[in-house]
């Protein structure tokens, strides 16, 4: 018998049989959805986030570990709107029918909120544009309310025995969230009208919520890294009409932002963007607190 067959058999035997677990397995494509699921599910669920704050969610490899996690998932929560189109389909190939598109365990958050930039007529010469609309929806806190209701609803259907648990945690979360939201909006009034330079359209919903204005983007076209000529033209533009802030996420490279900041004296600010994108951003409440704190601190507005 060939050696390779022996190895294959050994591989088979080493695979420990899966024993059913009481907890609902939730696979989140991004950390913000894992955090939201934890708010609703508490101890009744086990969450796993495919990405962390320093990873660009557009460009994730369909790693072996992710394939294994999705195979065992009861519910997957992703941003949708084509954000994960480069890797999620591979992960789903060997997963359960219920987490496939249109299944009860397949939750694409962007389907439940109004999208910015949707319906535009696009082609690839315009860069990495999502025809379905901008998928970075989690930075408008109003969206969390309707998505949380969906998470609770899906969990209740997947795990009927604990439906009341999910319902009551949803109520509790929604109430605390609405209170916090009102406070954030009061605190953020100064930011209204602030002019910001962004790296990519990753922060559009935050800017939209706080009624700030995007005046320039470091990427000449979405998904195309900043070029020298583009930065030169931005420098002229910003010298003529200065902006208040230059924003980027932890996963976007700092070079272009720091260079332009040093030339224009516009503060270059890294926002946490998602869970654990900065210190003390372990849950959704803390994420928004930290985001507002850094914006209010750095914005001379």
């Amino acid at each position: 018998m060939p050696r390779i067959l022996t190895i294959i058999v050994a591989g088979l035997l080493s695979a420990v049989p899966f024993t059913a677990m009481a907890q609902v397995n939730v696979f989140a494509c991004e950390p913000e959805w894992a955090a939201l699921a934890e708010e609703i599910g508490g101890a009744k669920i086990k969450t796993f986030s495919a990405t962390h704050a320093r990873q660009d969610p557009h460009y994730i490899r369909a790693r072996p570990s992710l394939i294994a996690k999705v195979r065992r998932a009861d519910l997957i929560i992703c941003s949708g709107a084509e954000l994960e189109v480069g890797w999620l389909p591979i992960l789903l190939q060997k997963a359960r029918p219920q987490v496939q598109p249109n299944g009860i365990g397949h939750l694409m958050a962007s389907q439940y909120v109004p999208l910015l930039g949707a319906g535009a007529n696009v082609d690839r010469s315009m860069g990495h544009v999502h025809a379905a609309g901008n998928p970075h929806i989690h930075l408008n806190p109003h969206h969390m309310v309707s998505i949380a209701a969906q998470v609770s609803d899906r969990l209740a259907k997947i795990d009927r025995a604990n439906a009341a648990h999910y319902q009551s945690r949803l109520q509790d979360f929604t109430q605390r969230w609405q209170q916090a939201l009102a406070q954030w909006e009061t605190r953020a009034t100064n930011l209204k009208g602030a002019q910001v330079v962004v790296h990519h359209s990753s922060l559009s919903y935050l800017i939209d919520w706080l009624q700030m204005r995007t005046v320039a983007s470091l990427e000449p076209k979405p998904g195309i890294p900043p070029t020298t000529s583009h930065l030169e033209s931005l420098l002229q533009q910003l010298n003529a009409a200065p902006a208040n802030l230059m924003l980027r996420t932890p996963y976007e490279p700092d070079t272009a932002s720091l260079w332009l900041s040093s030339k224009t004296n516009i503060p270059a600010v890294v926002l946490p963007y998602t869970i654990d994108g900065a210190a003390n951003t372990g849950d959704l409440f803390a994420l928004y607190e930290a985001t507002l704190a850094v914006l209010l601190d750095k914005c001379r507005c």
């Binding site: 949708g80 709107a81 084509e82 189109v85 389909p89 598109p101 249109n102 009860i104 397949h106 939750l107 694409m108 389907q111 439940y112 949707a118 025809a131 379905a132 609309g133 209701a149 969906q150 609803d153 259907k157």
Partner: peptide
Amino acid sequence: GTTANTPPATSRRRIA
């Protein structure tokens, strides 16, 4: 929207 047994048919957008 929350009690129907299947996800609401809000996916009027073409995905992917």
